[in-house]
Design a protein around this nucleic acid. Structure first.
Lengths: 337, 337
DNA sequence: ACTCGCATGTCCAGCGCTGGACATTTCGCG
DNA sequence: CGCGAAATGTCCAGCGCTGGACATGCGAGT
């Protein structure tokens, strides 16, 4: 009873040829609705599961795709994985989540290995693997379709989904300015993330628009993690003329700012406004809850997966972001400048 | 040049029989060190990657294991995945991370499907799937080795790794008592997590030991998430006689307590002590950083993977926990009782 | 009645590897 | 020197499925 059902068993039960079952399995045309139903019923009854291995070996699609990532933010990865997973589930395709280390000189080899070993049909690259040259080259050499989530560089030959980081940072900066802030600290992200530059650019653009002079000393280069947020806050709050608001380019760093401010007895948001970026669950978990940019990570992942599965032409899709007002921003106490 | 190398190619280059290459691949005895070296060199040069599919199909091991999870805490899953992954990498085996929904009536089927489709050699169950009857039954029917991470129920027929939740909760409670607290609120976790009961039991045991009367009204049943922590805090802080300390049985709920306290202007830890459980990165990210129990999640996952890969006899391994003192606990202001 | 196009069946090779059965050679050691 | 174990080879079937080539039956359109 526990013997795994065969395609032959299914054929027998449905009273059709093995070939027909195969046709049903692969969504061939030229199968009548009636036959298809009978076959599907038999598959159901026998709890038949086509062996992925056999299908791969016999040269068809593997019905597997891989998600390659290297990101140490649990939140980010969780959302991305979940987004991909949901889409895969609907299409009945299997997802292999594969962590890699972009700084490892053998990444390219690793990816090639993954592909040749598992015969995945396509690949989703999440940032920052999206801009990892060795991986990109390996994938191109293998001639495998892939789509990139939030790539930094543009690449006409490959699909991608992304949000407008520059505009989002601009929005946030403008929001802060509208609240009355003129002196706004900015915590930049790590260089390996191309988005870091875009966000900085958005910040500058918003400043320029209203004629606020950009001041390099107000920018601190962080690494997207909590600790660098703390360091950034230490730096910015020790400035001779301290900013009235700090715009961290992700939530983790904003949390670091919050922590440092707390430990100095600085009250948020009355004495200092803080904003994040990403809208990870962290933004709701810290105190006060962060005003931040909602980056639609799950949707990005879902869309990427859709595009990959549809697998037709190269697609580039921009998804909308939004500014989430919570409680970490208030007008400045003392007007600076 | 980009043609995938064959086992035949390797054999040819190494000047041996295909069978010998296969022997090397499968770690057979009766292969001289010299031959093995030659074969390995050839594999290297040709960048040969044995097709997982072919190996599975030909009836050998698949060199794949699956990690099955259903846990909405990104931190937890990230750590578990990372732990498994590292171990797998060392043994050169592939990890399939598979989310499921334990409340779905078809979980059993889903798992059976996963196994028969992918031919994984073994399975790692992370909490709460560890105690999901349908999954357990399916796995037993399939006669597949599996190991459980932090199972709630005991199961002599299956391997497991775990920590002593009761002792840990006891430790934490005792610590709080030693700081002078007598009236300690406890936020219980969700029932589906068996560990919830253990932690509650540890809390009671510590209370009993020093002769503090257990008070059911000081226990709030949460759901392991931030929001339920907030609700718990609202409840506990509205009690006629408010506790001087709140022990949340995970960090997310502790963060909720922190948030609620902040919004009421209650100062932590001077006016209220708060402790968490798990030592997720969240514990370091909130303010003040949480005194919590370090649950060795990555190690648990690693150990589980090791056991599964070694795959010999049934093993049960307890890993040590530790109490991490940070800044969310202080002696109570006013002695209660 | 005669095509078509659809729906299905038959037959067979082959994906890349392993396992079993067995043969052969080499080598150390008593 | 002879024997058994170690080291390798040969040969072949088969895992479960798909794809191609081709045959056939059947109903609809002209």
């Amino acid at each position: 009873m526990s013997e795994r059902a065969n395609i032959r068993d299914v054929a027998a039960m449905a009273g059709v040829a093995v070939k027909t079952v195969s046709r049903v399995l692969n969504g061939h045309p030229y199968v009548s609705a009636d036959t298809r139903a009978r076959v599907e019923e038999a598959m159901q009854k026998l709890d038949f599961r086509p062996s992925v291995a056999a299908r791969i070996l016999s040269g068809s699609k593997s019905n597997q795709i891989a998600l390659i990532y290297d990101n140490h933010s649990p939140f980010y990865m969780f959302q991305i994985q979940t987004g991909c997973w949901e889409q895969c589930k609907q299409h009945n395709i299997r997802l292999l989540a594969q962590p890699v280390d972009v700084t490892d000189p053998t990444v390219g080899e690793q990816v090639r290995g993954l592909v040749t070993e598992t015969h995945v049909d396509g690949i989703i690259l999440s940032s920052p693997v999206t801009d990892c040259e060795p991986v990109l080259r390996a994938l191109e050499a293998l001639d495998l379709p892939f789509v990139r989530i939030s790539p930094g560089t543009n690449h006409a030959l490959t699909s991608s989904v992304f949000m407008d980081d520059t505009q989002a940072a601009d929005d946030m900066t403008t929001y802060l300015i509208n609240q009355g802030h003129r002196r706004i600290g900015f915590i930049k992200g790590h260089q390996s993330h191309m988005a870091s530059e875009d966000r900085l650019f958005g910040y500058r653009r918003a400043l320029d628009r209203v004629g606020i002079q950009f001041e390099p000393s107000l920018v601190f280069e962080g690494e997207f993690d909590f600790e660098s947020g703390v360091r950034a806050a230490q730096y910015l709050l020790d400035l001779p003329e301290v900013p009235t608001a700090i715009f961290a380019s992700n939530d983790d760093m904003a949390a670091g700012v919050l922590a440092e401010a707390h430990s100095r007895g600085i009250e948020i948001p009355t004495e200092l406004s803080v904003t994040g970026f990403d809208d990870t669950t962290l933004a709701r978990t810290v105190w006060p809850p962060l005003t931040t940019i909602h980056q639609p990570m799950a949707e990005l992942a879902q869309t990427a997966t859709e595009i990959l599965i549809a697998g037709n032409e190269i697609t580039h899709r921009r998804l909308p972001h939004s500014l989430i007002e919570r409680a970490s921003v208030a007008p400045p106490l003392r007007k600076t400048i």
